[in-house]
Amino acid sequence: MAFKDNDQAKAYWAENLSLVLKLLAVWFVVAYGCGILFVDALNEIRFFGFKLGFWFSQQGAIYTFVALIFVYVRQMTALDKKYGVDE
C-alpha cells in the first residue's frame, strides 16, 4: 500500500522493533532492576527523605513509564514521516 516496496516495509518494521526493544529495556531495568532486584543495594543510598530503591518502586518507575511513552510517540511520528506512512 503506502510503502514504496517490500524492502521499505521491512526496514520500517525493523526500526520499529528496535525502538520498542530499546524502550522496553529501559522499562525493565527501572521497574524490575531498580524497583525490585537491586532494591536492597539502592536502599543504602538516600534521596532526600527516601531510600532510593523504595523511591523507584513508589515514584521513580511511574515517572519513567510516562517519559517512555512520550519518547515512543515522538520517535514513531518521526519514523512514520521518514517512510511516508504518516497521516
Binding site: 520498542v20 522496553l24 518507575a61 511511574i62 517512555l68 511513552i69
Partner: peptide, 21 residues
C-alpha cells in the same frame, strides 16, 4: 509499605506494554 509497590508499578507499567506493543 514497600510491598504495595507491586500495585503501583504493576498497574502503570502494564500501560507501557499496552502502548508500545
Amino acid at each position: 509499605g514497600y510491598d504495595g509497590g507491586v500495585y503501583l508499578m504493576g498497574w502503570t507499567g502494564g500501560y507501557v506494554l499496552l502502548a508500545l506493543c
